[in-house]
Simulated scan of single mutants.
Amino acid sequence: MSRRVLYFDCFSGVSGDMIIGALVDLGVPVDLLQKGWEAVGGKGRVEVLEVSRRGIRGKKVKVELPHVHYEPVQMKKLIQEAPIPQRAKDVALKALGLLEEAEKEVHGISEGFHELGDPDTLFDLLCAGLALDYLSPDEVYCSPLPLSRGEVRCEHGPLPLPAPATLALLKGVPVYPLRSSIENVTPTGVALLRAVVNGFREFPEMVVEAVGYGAGDLDPPEVPNLLRAVWGKATEVEDYIWVLEADLDDVNPEFLPYLEQRLREAGVRDVGVYPLRMKKGRLGCTVRCLVEAPFKDGVIEVFFEESTTFGIRGWKANRWVLDREIEEVLTPYGAVKVKVGRLGGRLMGFSPEHESCKALAQSAKRPLKEIYAEAIKAFLESRGGSQDR
């Protein structure tokens, strides 16, 4: 029943490599990052180093990077065409879009990327997306961010800290001062957080199960240069979700698929469209969404923007959900992810993940239904032919 929670405790700052290191320390396999990096043409071996920052151990992920420069459109193409899970692509592409918007805002025109065009930006976006897809948290939160003062040297010369692009990305994010002179909060780190977090807040109510530490490059004397990723289960006694709906009788039917897409992008758990006979005998439809509380206001705004409604109904509904986890099974054509649901530790159901099956069907050039059947067979065989395990 409990939802899986990931909390980024950025007590000394955040960067892309710190996020990756912390998630690897939580258990993300380095082979996953290696394969993902190779999928976009990356060379060199991905290494995980055990390092110390002010006496606290942490993971540092490194890879030998080529001396090339990417423009945003090149990074986008590489990510879109890579044979990686869709959720990983979504995270990487959303963060990339935020970085591009920040660069345009700072420079006034579209100059492309400067330092952000280095290969390590692509590596950080891609590997962070892969790591988050692997862990698949139900909720992601982040602490307020500490900001150092000083300057950083870049292509334009010395710039104040926080760097202008970082500050552009921090709009709406709670911050506080930190006595440090290093660049402790980077544009890529903030972009990744904004791409995935449900909100910036102090520690959520949760049962802590694991803690991962990701290390930055430097080891300044003021504070351990580490990011903590805390993993656990939400502890709310009652679980609820918002139900939002509106009846429409004057909307162009061609607009409905786009409305559904925008609502999903805004964070709804699910959206349905149901036929309805309305006043004066008009045929219409009800558009109904299920949405977590942190996304409610954004979903309402999109609902008004993209539909013709003048009013939206909403109420909180209790819900009961199975404990969910992702397992991987091996089929004759390759590995497939399977979503598994349990109640009190007892297996209640399972389902092959569509995107995983789709990717394998495309790469193996086999029918999707065949991949589904093989995944179900492999899952049952791994349990001796029974679901009751």
Rank of each mutant, 00 (worst) to 15 (best):
G108H: 12
A88V: 02
K77M: 10
V175C: 07
E111Y: 10
G117E: 12
Y141V: 05
S110T: 01
V91F: 05
P85E: 03
L147N: 02
L93M: 08
P177H: 09
A102T: 07
E139W: 04
C127P: 01
L169G: 04
H114V: 04
E103F: 01
V106G: 08
A168W: 03
P144C: 09
E103A: 11
V106Q: 04
E103S: 06
S180W: 00
A88F: 02
F123V: 09
Y134P: 00
I109D: 10
S143D: 10
D138C: 04
L96T: 07
Y134R: 04
P119N: 10
Q80F: 01
A95M: 03
G172Q: 10
D118E: 14
V152E: 15
Y176T: 00
I84C: 04
E155D: 11
L147D: 01
L125I: 04
K171R: 15
K104Y: 09
F113K: 11
L125Q: 03
A168D: 14
L147E: 07
C127N: 14
Q80K: 15
P85A: 06
E115M: 04
Q80I: 04
K104V: 15
L93K: 05
G97Q: 15
V106K: 03
K104A: 08
L125S: 00
P119Y: 04
P160C: 08
P137W: 05
P158M: 12
L99K: 11
E105R: 14
L96N: 13
L169Y: 10
D133L: 00
L130H: 02
V106D: 10
G150R: 12
S181M: 03
Y134Q: 02
L96V: 13
C142N: 12
E139C: 00
S148T: 13
K94S: 14
E155I: 11
P162C: 09
L98P: 01
L170I: 00
L93A: 09
I109K: 13
E101F: 01
P174M: 12
L145Q: 11
P160F: 08
L169R: 13
A102H: 06
V140D: 08
S143R: 06
A163L: 01
I79P: 00
G150N: 14
R149D: 14
D120E: 13
Q86W: 05
C154R: 13
E111W: 08
E111S: 10
H156A: 10
L99A: 07
I84Y: 07
S136E: 11
G150Q: 13
P137Q: 08
A131Q: 05
G112L: 05
D138G: 04
S181T: 11
L122A: 09
L132V: 06
L147Y: 02
D90F: 00
P160G: 12
L130F: 04
L170T: 01
S181F: 02
R179D: 13
A82V: 13
K77W: 09
K104T: 05
A168S: 14
L135V: 05
K171G: 15
T166E: 06
K89L: 05
P146Y: 06
Q86C: 00
S136R: 12
